[in-house]
Design a protein around this nucleic acid. Structure first.
Length: 804
RNA sequence: GCCGGGGUGGCGGAAUUGGUAGACGCGAGAGACUUAAAAUCUUUUGGGGUUAAAAACCCCUUGCGGGUUCGAGUCCCGCCCCCGGCACCA
């Protein structure tokens, strides 16, 4: 048997596709558009492992399918190339990140090309190109001009290892998302984006998105909207009031103490001596200790509730005018709500723990269960509200508070503003100038891009300033407004900035190679191509890239740059590919499989087929080298079938199977069930192979069905049977409903629901005929001999069930 | 603790949404080819029973225990386990 030798034919067809621009997105096309996007990669030094291309293979297969179905498909690729690895490599070796990135991109591109992806490479983008990041800077400036970017010096997350500030989204369980170092709190001057202004829209518009439910849920949780009230407690012997946020106004009568976070402003006043208390030293000591704790330690649920009473002041419960003690405790978080809470130990588990530990009063105000009881019930000990249900009381107490101006309805979010500046080198410079006369002045559009300056020293300073601060020629500039002396902002943008709008750049590239200003140039193309119809990538970006990009898109919508509310209509997450035996692939375990090896040995088509055949697209799956071999055998068998093609008229049986296969493959592709689509192609091939001669018409349709999965081999076979290339430009086969139906069907005969026999019947046979034939069967007679048939259940072309 | 997703042969996984459980692939067994091996081809392959053997036949089987139904992997109730995410969010 002739060996399947992919290396020659794959190169041949890749060259053909490139030369003939087979996959170029059409500019002025009457076809309906389809925008099919991959999450673009960070071009790391290690290159691809077999897990990466899984999503790419799926979108590529899908893009081929859509093109054959008559769509004008935009399927682009680019590089998200700013980020820490290249910079850290530069620190170690002195090689400029620009050079590393260039090398890595070359390698990645070569790898992707060897898989034969149908990207329109003319639209390739790179976030570190000046013509690209001038736009990233431009969008930042628009945010600044609308007051959505502001300077702040609140304590923020600081990674001591990366020596930079981080966004909340980049802190995972108290650890740095990049390097897993313990994140600290540090006061540094930061640029912050007001993503909270979009909280409600980011939440509401999730409804209309066709995204995996877990991702939507993660975004909902991250935004963390809760409705309740802000209640004011006056503090005795001081001019201050303490505000608390609560969702349970109905438990106000049970608030027996107040707790402040160590970061609370009143605690600061005490430390500064503005408010006199009896135990300042004790409080000071407690705060110092709390500060030392990492976020991880502070939020450890198993930890005991610690705290110190602030002696000498009392708060007044606005519900019953009772004076209650005020405590400072680190279980109350400074950054959530008002940084202070009313403590209701009878109806909150954490407050209960605190009260138990420190001997504070527990007062029951809701009936319904064992203390601490957090459910709904009848209100008691609550003055005139006693007797109401907690749901009703919640509203009534709130109304009363509003009337007396002691509180107001409020919505609180867990989502915080986005800490947007980094004290690192390899990112987009922030295009602002600090001027003594004019304050903070934005650069003008014509002065963009603000180039990232050259330097020999990439080392982060650790002082809260970026390495750019040491480059005098960069820092010292003229104020764009008064032309006096100015100093440039030296922070850079985070990793996520470039990926917030890259899907727009692919559209823009179709209009102008160099991404010129102004934005209005691209109006028509944005209208035509947005939103992205299908977006595929890993689930790890749920609250990072996917949230940030939605935020920027909504902003661009507000300022009239784009015309859809959401950027990505449908999202799919590929499941992880594990090593053999379900172990995670990693360098240290030595079980990483490179697609290069598979391609070299078995070819790109085998790699593509196997990536799609291994299991459900969104499921976690394990790689198996034996399984790869199965795909190779499949293609070899297809090659054998091809040799038997002839002019013979197809039989009804093979026609029926073909049309059933067309139906199945089409439907499976539409619902991203690649594994079962491939399996039905195998079934058809197995049947064709049994024939003496394979009718050419049948086989040519089979090639078309195979083409999106194994494009190189399909092209080769298409040429061999005399087809004009490219098979990928052929229309997708249509199935004939009538032909897809079997002429003869297998009807299951059941006795009391148990299958006892099967009958071959002509399709459409009615109950009478089926019953007659069924009762002739020996097996049926055996089971119905003694008993009477009570009931017959009949399903046309499927089953007959005798109940005896 | 809360929220999502799961649990089907030796393995990866199918099952038209209530209708022959185990498609397709891998692996394994037997045979053919070969000096031999690999590759390839043919064939068997959920477990058990019955049988000298085979055909045929029967029973059991989708994490566990109940239920609804003529009929349950699929629906309902109660458990157990695994994976992912969130977690002192007031």
């Amino acid at each position: 048997m002739e060996r399947y030798s992919p290396s020659k034919i794959e190169k041949k067809w890749q060259d053909y596709w490139e030369k003939e621009k087979v996959f170029k997105t059409e500019k002025d096309s009457k076809k309906p558009k389809f925008y099919c996007l991959d999450m673009f990669p960070y071009p790391s030094g290690e290159g691809l492992h077999v897990g990466h291309p899984r999503g790419y293979v799926a979108t590529d297969t899908f893009s081929h399918f859509k093109r054959m179905k008559g769509y004008n498909v935009l399927h682009p690729m680019g590089w998200d190339a700013f980020g820490l690895p290249a910079e850290n490599y530069a620190i170690k070796t002195g090689i400029h990140p620009k050079n590393t990135v260039e090398e890595n991109i070359k390698h990645f591109k070569k790898q992707l090309k060897s898989i034969g992806f149908s990207y329109d490479w003319e639209r390739e983008i790179n976030t570190t190109d000046k013509e690209y990041y001038k736009w990233t800077q431009w969008i930042f400036l628009q945010l600044f001009k609308k007051g959505l970017a502001y300077e702040d010096t609140r304590p923020i997350n600081w990674c001591p290892s990366c020596k930079t500030g981080l966004a909340n989204e980049e802190v995972v369980n108290g650890l740095c998302d990049r390097c897993s170092a313990k994140v600290e709190k540090k006061d540094i001057r930061q640029w912050v984006l007001k993503i909270t202004a979009y909280a409600d829209r980011l939440l509401e518009d999730l409804e209309e998105l066709n995204w995996p439910e877990p991702i939507k849920e993660m975004q909902r949780n991250w935004i963390g909207r809760s409705e309740g009230a802000v209640i004011r407690f006056s503090v005795s012997r001081t001019p201050f009031t303490v505000e608390v946020f609560t969702t349970r106004t109905d438990t106000l009568f049970g608030a027996t103490f107040l707790v402040l976070a160590p970061e609370h402003f009143l605690v600061k006043k005490i430390m500064e001596g503005e408010v006199e208390v009896e135990n300042k030293k004790e409080i000071e000591k407690y705060i110092k200790e709390a500060r030392k704790k990492s976020e991880l330690e502070r939020t450890d649920l198993a930890k005991e509730k610690t705290g110190v009473e602030i002696k000498g002041i009392k708060a007044v419960n606005p519900a019953n005018k009772e004076e209650i003690p005020v405590w400072v405790a680190d279980y109350v978080l400074g950054f959530y709500g008002k940084g202070s809470i009313m403590s209701v130990p009878a109806h909150d588990e954490r407050d209960y723990e605190m009260a138990e530990k420190h001997g504070l009063e527990v007062r029951k105000v809701i009936e319904g269960g064992e203390i601490p009881f957090t459910g709904e019930g009848k209100m008691v000990n609550s003055g005139k509200f006693s007797g109401m249900s907690s749901e009703e009381g919640r509203e009534k107490v709130l109304e009363e508070l509003e009337k007396e101006k002691k509180g107001k309805r409020a919505v609180n979010y867990k989502l915080g503003d986005w800490v947007f500046s980094r004290q690192r080198y390899w990112g987009e410079p922030i295009p602002l100038v600090h001027c003594k006369e004019c304050g903070i002045v934005p650069l003008e559009e014509k002065d963009l891009p603000l180039d990232l300056p050259e330097t020999e020293r990439y080392e982060p300073t650790g002082t809260g300033e970026s390495p750019l601060a040491g480059i005098e020629s960069f820092v010292n500039t003229e104020c764009p407004k008064c032309k006096g002396k100015g100093k440039r902002e030296t922070n850079t943008m985070p990793q996520w900035a470039g990926s917030c709008w890259y899907y727009l750049a692919f559209i823009m590239k179709g209009d102008s190679k160099s991404l010129n200003f102004p934005a209005s140039l691209y109006k028509e193309s944005f209208k035509k191509w947005l939103p992205v119809d299908l977006y595929v990538g890993g689930a790890e970006h749920a609250v990072l890239h996917l949230l940030y990009a939605r935020f920027w898109h909504k902003f661009l919508y507000d300022i009239g740059v784009v015309f859809t509310k959401e950027p990505f209509l449908e999202l799919k997450n590929q499941g992880l590919i594990m090593g053999e035996g379900g172990i995670k692939m990693s360098k240290s375990k030595g079980n990483v499989i490179s697609p290069d090896e598979v391609i070299k040995r078995d070819g790109a088509d085998v790699l593509r087929l196997y990536e799609m055949f291994l299991g459900g697209f969104e499921d976690r799956v394990s790689w198996s080298e034996d399984g790869v071999n199965g795909m190779k055998r499949f293609l070899e068998k297809v090659g054998e079938t091809a040799k038997k093609t002839g002019k013979q008229e197809p039989s009804r049986e093979i026609k029926t199977l073909l049309h059933k296969t067309i139906k199945k493959v089409t439907e499976d592709l539409e619902s991203f069930k690649f594994n079962t689509a491939i399996s039905s192609l195998m079934i058809l091939n197995n049947e064709m192979k049994k024939l003496e001669e394979v009718p050419k018409g049948i086989f040519s349709d089979f090639i078309k069905l195979l083409a999106p999965f194994a494009p190189h081999f399909a092209e080769e076979l298409w040429e061999k049977i005399g087809g004009e290339p490219s098979v990928l430009k052929q229309p997708w086969p249509k199935f004939d409903k009538e032909l897809a139906k079997e002429e003869e069907v297998t009807v299951v005969v059941q006795i009391n629901g148990k299958a006892r026999d099967t009958l071959k019947m002509p399709a459409g046979a009615d109950e009478k005929d089926v019953k007659k034939k069924a009762l002739q069967s020996k097996k049926v007679k055996k089971w119905t001999k003694e008993e009477k048939i009570k009931k017959i259940i009949f399903l046309k072309d499927k089953l007959i069930n005798f109940v005896v």
